[in-house]
């Protein structure tokens, strides 16, 4: 076997602390769950509807993020304009502020008297303790994943390829859909799944804006506060399984997606 030098050995030692620090608690949680209890929890209406609500609201948030985030990502990838840095920073802000602060920010504008909440309440949309509130909280916190990942994808497509398509008679919007988007699709999909997984996990903003109806992270919190650790574990395991499956799909997509310029 190749002899490792002392720097490599030292770095492996330091790095593995972090690796096991993350891995061991997750594995511990999963193995500590009693399969029977897990099964009975899956039959518990409250648990199932909380999980379903999380997945469903996160999906809605992801679709909105896609509809608005992909065009924005394309603009950022292709155009230089005054204030571009500001736009980029604003998009990334949700990543750096505490999620409880996100909840407060959103509550201020989406309460029935707020600048968004007031006009929207006229068409029957309420956000306080309602599904739309869950969705906006998720959207706010997770949309940067869609924008940033899609943008990376668009930047990897040579703009000259679009120009060639246009000289061949394809209009600019058509070119986007038949040339650019297919070539950047992997990044768009990866960004969407990351956004979805992140949205399912959202707690801080939701706990302030829409404590009810109960999403999975809220349910875990409530069971923990009301009944203690053992009661919260099965729901936690179920939720983490959903997130890990999504995450696994992302990893598989990243490694297995056929990119046309490489074998």
């Amino acid at each position: 076997m190749r002899k490792l030098d002392y720097t490599t050995i030292f770095f492996i030692l330091m790095g593995s602390f972090l690796f096991f620090f993350v891995l061991i608690p997750i594995v511990n949680l999963i193995v500590s769950a009693n399969p029977e209890v897990l099964l009975s929890n899956l039959q518990d209406q409250e648990v199932v509807s909380a999980l379903f609500l999380s997945i469903y609201c996160a999906l809605a948030a992801t679709i909105i993020a896609l509809l608005c985030g992909v065009p924005l990502a394309y603009l950022l990838a292709r155009h230089d304009f005054w204030g571009k840095g500001f736009v980029e920073s604003v998009i990334d802000v949700p990543l750096v502020i505490p999620h409880t602060v996100t909840g407060i920010i959103l509550l201020l504008v989406f309460n029935p008297g707020g600048i968004f909440g007031a006009p929207l309440s006229h068409i029957g949309l309420t956000f306080n303790d309602a599904i739309p509130g869950i969705i906006v909280a998720m959207l706010f916190a997770s949309s940067p994943f869609v924008v940033n990942s899609s943008r990376e994808g668009f930047e990897s497509v040579d703009p000259r390829m679009e120009k060639v398509a246009r000289t061949l008679g394809s209009g600019s919007l058509k070119t986007f859909f038949i040339i650019t988007l297919p070539l950047a699709l992997r990044n768009v999909v990866v960004g969407s799944i990351m956004c979805w997984a992140r949205a399912i996990s959202e707690f801080g903003a939701i706990v302030i804006l829409a404590y009810y109806p109960t999403t999975a992270p809220i349910l875990i919190y409530r069971r923990f506060v009301d009944f203690g650790l053992t009661e919260s574990i099965p729901v936690a395991v179920l939720l983490i399984s959903v997130c890990l499956i999504l995450f696994l799909i992302v990893r598989l997509l990243i490694s297995g997606w056929k990119t046309y310029d490489k074998d």
Partner: peptide, 20 residues
Amino acid sequence: TPLEKRGVGFVYQNYMLFPH
């Protein structure tokens, strides 16, 4: 005239074939 209506053919140095 927009480029898709100009009726020109364009060949780039790196060909810019559609990889998909």
